[in-house]
Amino acid sequence: MPNPAVTALAGTDTAAGDSAAIACVLTGLETIILGKPDQIRLCLACLLARGHLLIEDVPGVGKTTLAHALAHVLGLAWQRVQFTSDLLPADIVGVSIFDRASQQFHFRRGPIFTQLLLADEVNRASPRTQSALLEAMEERQVSADGTTYPLPEPFFVAATQNPHEQLGTFALPESQLDRFLMRVTLGYPDAVHERELLRGGERRELLPGMTPALDATAVLRMQRAVRGVYVADALLDYCQALIARTRERADLKLGLSPRAGQGLIRAAQAWAYLAGRSAVLPEDVQAVLPAVVTHRLERRDAAAGDGAGVATEIIRAVPVPV
């Protein structure tokens, strides 16, 4: 992982307090989610890059706990929606109710009006509800009865889904998957950390005892700082070469979209910011690439596996600029 000694590109505009706060956030999260420092870092990078996160894994590995912990440690207001097949768009977005006293319709805001929305098991809702959520995610606003209501800032959706549960689910189509900046898979913990989990009991119970390391203003400030991380022409060349590579490969159904390319660069900026650098290096791109691209790439031959191996192959195939 990042070499702290390579300090040439050390951020000048990252306030010292912010970098301390980031270290604090990461430590806090690591005490809740054991043995997954990379995934935690990716989740944070995704948030700072103003993207949305899809956590995909089997039940019981801590998806919900991770989202919960993220909200708590960052000090954001948060809501949780458990998606089911009978959930309606209005249950998320909100509904207009006639107020007898004023003889007017009043818009009652749904759970989406929050800073961090945890959309649990998003693939169990009907496509109609899914698309209402994803539209709001993309536009960061909600329209009802001809009025537009902006969502709060920052706004971050962490959705979870269980890929193995097939019955009564509606898998997200590619176009919807493309709206998630990253997809993170947690996986089972290793032996040491699993032992600790078994001994320690429910990790979520630790949360109330922790003080938030950040607040909404700090998060917004960091998001702006991420946008200021420098991206050199050589690095843009590199990203373009990576994207072009996905379009050349005959075994993929589709290459990466320009939106995916933009997302890749934003994610890399956030990753560099987390490492305390003021410019993006090829290593930053390589670090975020699997999380950014695997859910957008699908092999023609499903038997050859999903996009997971593809990211590594692409990284190995494209020379870094010298």
Partner: peptide
């Protein structure tokens, strides 16, 4: 640096110079 910890400082410095020139503002 893993191979030659004794060179770490100098290697890091020279690479820092390079990354600054190639990828920095």
């Amino acid at each position: 640096s893993e191979r030659r910890p004794d060179l770490k400082e100098r290697v890091d410095a020279i690479f820092a110079r390079y990354t600054q020139l190639r990828f920095g503002p």
